[in-house]
Design a protein around this nucleic acid. Sequence first.
DNA 1: GCGTCTATATCGAAG
DNA 2: CTTCGATGTAGACGC
Lengths: 256, 256
Amino acid sequence: MGVALMKVKSKENPSVEEVVEILSEGLSNEAIITLFAHCSVFYDGRAKSELGAGDRVIMIKPDGTFLIHQKEKRVPVNWQPPGSIVSFQIEEGKIKLRSVRRKPKEILEVELLKVYLISYFQAEDYEALNLMGSEAEMADLILQNPSIIEEGFKALQKEKPIKHGIIDIYGVDRDGNIVVLELKRRRADLHAVSQLKRYVDALKEEHGSVRGILVAPSLTSGAEKLLKDLGLEFKKLNPPKREKARKGKQKTLDML
Amino acid sequence: MGVALMKVKSKENPSVEEVVEILSEGLSNEAIITLFAHCSVFYDGRAKSELGAGDRVIMIKPDGTFLIHQKEKRVPVNWQPPGSIVSFQIEEGKIKLRSVRRKPKEILEVELLKVYLISYFQAEDYEALNLMGSEAEMADLILQNPSIIEEGFKALQKEKPIKHGIIDIYGVDRDGNIVVLELKRRRADLHAVSQLKRYVDALKEEHGSVRGILVAPSLTSGAEKLLKDLGLEFKKLNPPKREKARKGKQKTLDML
DNA sequence: GCGTCTATATCGAAG
DNA sequence: CTTCGATGTAGACGC
């Protein structure tokens, strides 16, 4: 017995039975389910939280993602990541949604006090994001054109694992000194300087003189001071916004 | 002329005119608007991205938050943060949503090729999340009971600003040595050790011997090695999951 | 699986 | 406003 394959289904002010029906259908159809509901939320896992009753938007994705959004902020107030298992039960005439993550063990429970809208969407999507301006692209730019850093710079290795961490770019300058580059796609802060220092210190245990260069569009005031105190250097570089080869799944003949 | 104040409104497979109507109503009503739509997305700002046509869920919050979710992953594929200004226009019979952030200048554009569902929700919510198990609670625990760290430890200051950064907890041990605590609510990594090292180094410029203790439930293998190499210490401590005083806005008589 | 690191990170607190 | 550090960070990539 197959469930009707509808692209979209929705119901305003549904009864408990209708919520159960649409929820079940959405889950078995691998649809994205959204609810507008008055609800309270409980979470226990890496931390623990309680959220008293209020109106929220709930989204359940076919990959197990579970999101609860309040009317403000970019981030969900509570959530469960992909791979979580969602289920529901009825207690005293109210629906309780439950999402469980196995490792680490985390449980999210939503008590639906009133559902204003339930809907699902059988989304088809074969496209992936093409993002330009990442740190990876800064690295590509430097590897293709090392003199951007300084005349005579030669890049020897990318993502070189060392004793305590992984160096973004490892190379030598015109005088043969070892050079460590730490790249940041945005304004670099104290954290970035400490990271560079850690790499430089690790290499200094083996080589004599090691230069450390922080490559970023700019520095915070504190980063600039610390960099100077530690004898490290700064090279201004903006991340390039270049088109990349398409990575997303393409609709091919095989899929039809 | 006032717009009818409905808590929820929705329309499946709406016409362009109906999308415009519900969108306008939702925006002026300070509602959360969601769309199920086949769309393509363009973003330019701190980075730049393109996303070819596919089915997504779009959410627009009254605070300006703009989210575009694909059917997988916990995070939105594109977004705009709170404070952004949303608008729309019609081009060749298609609706184009546009969200602009002023600083940094960022633009998000969504071309709606087909809308399967549009809905809005006049959400009322006066509750804030009560989260237990944060780093702040570890700090409270230590300040209330310093011997948790070791016999004779005395905490002198919390969040002490120093030359390069801010120390979580600053104190002295039974022998009068300066002690720096760096707290982590989860397994501590290389970054945490580098951070502690930065604070210890800064204090060493003024005081003679300074002890650094990383306080966390556990350490990564690399963090343990680096900690030992740097002569720093580890104290195992789990973040407590304690109830906190309510912080959320409460419905009070004044509001009625 | 763990370890390491990036992110259009977002968010909040403090100066 | 900027700086700084936490986050139930999530996600990716390597081993």
